[in-house]
Structure formats: C-alpha cells, structure tokens
C-alpha cells in the first residue's frame, strides 16, 4: 500500500524537475548559469493563476487536448513499475494499454491543434501523428523482445529481467538503443524537435500548442513533463532492470536513475544539432529496425 502512495506522489511531483535538470545541463554546456532547477514549478504556478485567450471559433476539443495530455500519461504511469516495485495496476497485457493510453493523449493533442484553424498548428499535428506511426512499431518490437526474454506479458515482470542482461544481453542493448530514440522522439527533444526554437516552421510538438495559454498551457507543460517522466522510467527499467533489496534504497536508486536519464537527455541536446525534418523518419525507421533485430536475435 505504501509503495502505491509513493509511486503516485513521485509521478505527481517529480516531472517538472526533469525539465529543470535538462535546462541546467544544457546551460552548463553553454557556459551559462541557466534557470533554477525548480523553474518548472514556478512556471506552472504562474500559468495556473493567469487568464487565457481562446482562439475564435474553437470549441471544447481545443481544451480536451491539454486535459488528455495530463490525464493519459498520469494513468499510464500507474501501469509502469518504478524501480523494483510492482506497478500499482498490473495484469497480463498491460503494456498494450500503456501504449494506447499514450496514443489517446496524442489523438486529442492533435485534434486540439486542428481546432484552432491555424496553418502552423495543423502542420505540427500532421508531423506528430506521422512520426509516431514510425515510433509505435519500434515500441512494440521491443515489447515482443521483452516478452520473449521474460516469458511474461505484464510490464512489471517484463521490465524486471535482471538476469536478462546475462542471457540476452545483445537483444537488450538493441531494444534499449531503439527505445532511447523513441524516448527522444516522443518527447520532442533534439535531434527530433527543438523545444526552444522560435521558428514555428521547424517545430513539431511546440507548434501544436501555440494557441494555448494560461491554465491550459500549464496543463500542456505539465503533461509533457509527465510523459517525459513516464517514458524515462520505462527506458530506465530496461537499462537497469535490477532490484535493490531495501525498498527505501530502491526508491532512491529510482529517483537518481530518472535524474540521470534527464541529465543524459540534456547532454544529447547539448552535443547534437536538430535533424533536418526529412531525416527524422529515417532515424525512426532505424529505431524500428534496431528493435526488430533485437527481437530476431531471440528467435530460436
């Protein structure tokens, strides 16, 4: 019972910290001081108190985007084991629900973008749904590989395969590499998308939410950070599928691991340039091929 409470508290409270860690890492690489680590929280507090302007002619779908963008990743987090602890909700086939709940938030975010009638937001929505078509098979090839390694169909057991690194190291490396690409693509980080750019033409996710402001934009930011947190936790559990025996130490290891993932994302963002848009599908197909090879190595 206690671990469910900790799980929920972590997923509610921690996500904005990750964006802070990424920003600070990037600042350090650029030789700047950067914003405070808690800037994400300050932003949310400010946005939730502000008024907002809704684009003329938009309806309830415009607001359904931010709502689904928060609720869906929060729900998905309940299916995911954090560290060595079993997920609060766990049953055979929960990884499919995990992927499809995240797809629900994508549906409404893209629909909300189209509701504004803006050319740029339509463009962002089109790119978002197109690129995720390539990311989805990469995710599922990985699921198949993990199901074969662990013999289980539930995320809590699929991801807890410590011995897997001994018996099936090569496939796990391929899946981890593929999912690292998916993690960056799904959260619109460099090299796929630059969250800091000021050119709407080149953006994917940010351009979809140009018209959201005030509390709705606060939800968008919070939802994006929760999604980053959830996918980082998924990735972390593939790379580090070991259980620390003491439950308290295990939570600390988990939080440290998540912050380390955020730090690595910051490093990647600092040392890489954004890809040209036409190259993005190629990299995503590469991710699919990687995890497909990971699965093939297990076919015997």
């Amino acid at each position: 019972m206690i671990h469910i409470v900790v799980h929920v508290l972590l997923v509610l409270a921690l996500p904005p910290l990750l964006t802070g860690v990424i920003a600070r890492t990037k600042a350090a690489f650029a030789g700047r001081n950067g914003p405070p680590l808690l800037q994400g929280y300050y932003d949310l507090a400010r946005l939730f108190r502000k008024g907002s302007i809704l684009p003329e002619g938009s309806g309830w779908v415009f607001l359904a985007g931010p709502v689904a963008g928060v609720a869906a990743p929060l729900f998905a987090s309940l299916l995911l084991p954090f560290g060595g602890h079993t997920a609060p909700v766990s049953f055979a086939g929960d990884m499919i629900l995990f992927a499809y709940v995240l797809a629900l938030s994508r549906f409404f975010t893209a629909a909300a973008a189209l509701d504004t009638g803006s050319a740029f937001e339509g463009m962002g929505a089109a790119r978002e749904v197109a690129f995720s078509c390539l990311a989805e098979p990469a995710l599922f090839f990985g699921f198949v590989a993990l199901a074969r390694i662990s013999g289980s169909l539930s995320l809590s057991q699929m991801l807890g395969t410590g011995p897997g690194w001994v018996t099936a190291g090569a496939p796990l490396v391929l899946v981890a590499a593929s999912w690292a690409i998916v993690l960056l693509a799904e959260n619109c980080r460099i090299p796929f998308d630059d969250p800091n750019t000021h050119l709407e033409l080149t953006m994917i996710h940010e351009v979809m939410v140009l018209d959201h402001g005030g509390p709705a934009f606060g939800l968008v930011l919070y939802g994006a950070s929760v999604k980053l947190f959830v996918l980082s936790a998924l990735f972390l559990r593939v790379v580090f599928p070991f259980n620390v025996t003491d439950p308290r130490l295990d939570w600390i290891a988990f939080v440290a691991g998540i912050l380390l993932v955020a730090l690595s994302i910051g490093v990647v963002e600092s040392v890489m340039a954004r890809l040209r848009l036409v190259k993005v599908p190629q990299l995503l197909v590469g991710a699919c091929v990687l995890s497909a090879f990971g699965m093939l190595l297990l076919a015997r």
Partner: peptide, 14 residues
C-alpha cells in the same frame, strides 16, 4: 477558468 474567465482572440499564425 472560473477564477479567470478566458476571452476570445484570433488564432496565432506566426
């Protein structure tokens, strides 16, 4: 929204 009612404005087109 009840605390600060939103207003309507034209969409942002770059």
């Amino acid at each position: 929204f009840a605390a600060a009612a939103p207003t309507a404005g034209p969409t942002w087109d770059c």
